[in-house]
Every structure is written in structure tokens, then in C-alpha cells.
């Protein structure tokens, strides 16, 4: 019983900490002169806090694991809303799918070969500097 309560209060602390990080990210995003998504600022803030060890990974692990492992749940509502937006796709659906797949294959190859080229150049530079 006690152990169970301990787990719950720890989860409660984790939610509190995550809320504070979210609040911090929101405030920083509002202070920036450009419009940037608050959640990404919050993510970078958390990464910074972890890196300088103000926040330890154990202090957030359970809640983060829960949110990341079941993240697919959160996108069901926007996909359901598509039923209302079907008119926008209309008879463009096939072309929409083709553009999406072709662009993804190009993105995939571009990332692959630019990274490969970088690795090759790095190897050569290392060999020359030896």
C-alpha cells in the first residue's frame, strides 16, 4: 500500500515538474521577438536543463515514458477531424499521396547521401591530419 502511494506521489511530482518546464518554455517563447512554437522551446529548455544537470532524467522518466509510448493516441482526434475536411482533398487524394511518397523518398535519399558524404570527408580529413 505504502509503495503504491509512493509511486503515485512520485508521478505527481513528475507531472508538476513537467508543467513547470512547459510554463518556462511558454514564457521564453513569449519573450522571443519571433513566433516560435512554445512546445519546441519547452523541449529545448528541458534538454538544456538535463544537460546542465538541474533536472535529472529519473525526475521525469515515468511521465515521459507514458506520454512518448502512447503518443499515437493523441493524434486520433486530428485524424478524425479529417472526415470534416474531406472536401479539401476531393479528387486530389491520389495526387496528394503520390507527392507525399515521392517527396519522402527524395528526403530519405538526400539525408542518407549528405550524411555519407560528411562521414567520408571526416575520414579523409582525419587521415590527412595524422
Amino acid at each position: 500500500m505504502n509503495r503504491q502511494l509512493g509511486t503515485i506521489s512520485s508521478l505527481f511530482q513528475q507531472i508538476t515538474l513537467l508543467s513547470l518546464v512547459a510554463l518556462g518554455g511558454t514564457i521564453i517563447a513569449k519573450l522571443l521577438p519571433i513566433t516560435v512554437p512554445q512546445s519546441i522551446v519547452g523541449m529545448l529548455l528541458l534538454l538544456a536543463l538535463l544537460t546542465v544537470r538541474i533536472v535529472r532524467i529519473e525526475q521525469l522518466q515515468s511521465i515521459a515514458h507514458l506520454l512518448l509510448a502512447y503518443m499515437g493516441l493523441l493524434f486520433i482526434p486530428p485524424v478524425v477531424s479529417i472526415a470534416e475536411h474531406m472536401a479539401l482533398l476531393d479528387n486530389h487524394l491520389i495526387r496528394f499521396v503520390i507527392v507525399c511518397i515521392l517527396s519522402t523518398m527524395l528526403t530519405f535519399s538526400a539525408a542518407l547521401f549528405s550524411a555519407k558524404l560528411t562521414v567520408l570527408i571526416q575520414k579523409r580529413v582525419r587521415r590527412l591530419s595524422k
Partner: peptide
Amino acid sequence: LIFPATICLALM
């Protein structure tokens, strides 16, 4: 919940 979930991507 998408908002806090995005923040948790930092852990990845």
C-alpha cells in the same frame, strides 16, 4: 497532451 508530449522528446 500533445504539448507536454513534445517537451518529453528532449529525453530521446
